[in-house]
Amino acid sequence: MKLRTKMLKPFRKVPVLNAANVLLVENEEHLHSRLADIIVQNEKDVNITVRLARKLPLPVENQDSRPRIDLVVFIVNLMSERSVQSAEQSVRYLDSGFFLGKVCFLVTGARCLSVSSTRLLTVRKMASSLHCPLLFAEDQTSEGVIAAAVRLLGILKVAAGLVPFATGLSLNSVTHCILPSDLEQNLDSPTC
């Protein structure tokens, strides 16, 4: 019963015309505000609201003032184990309706993964079991952050229904993460 009130539901609110709302969830809080700025600056035609959170569930008090969330982005920093765990726990507070094209994962630090590739595998498994897209971002350079923000904006506009002939679900069906088969791992992973 308690869990149910804490759940974030996608269709609880009525959508507003020409508006899209995205929720960025990041435990470390060092990328999401930068992303938010760029997302808002990059879109002129539509009213974009970016909401930031460290983790889910969101506080119950603000439930009524909170707008309808069109896209939830989990930002996972592979350099930290906590980041992965926090995302894993937060996902539980999303209503299943979100997983029809309203959730995606954004991973940073995948390239300097000399220490632990198991974290990447964990996130990959999570994303593929939830049928969500898994994006990678280069958060070290400002160009990389801009590129990531622009990609998120594109997904957001589709998820918010602002792109004719495309829905979040249709986009999700072509972008969701698929666990690489063993073959690929055999082919090109360096022996460790």
């Binding site: 990447l120 990678f136 280069e138 160009e143 590129a147 690489p180 690929e184 082919l187 090109d188 992973s189």
Partner: peptide, 13 residues
Amino acid sequence: GFLYKFLTMWDGF
């Protein structure tokens, strides 16, 4: 081999 590996974690930019 490098490309196959890199594609799976590329940010496209």
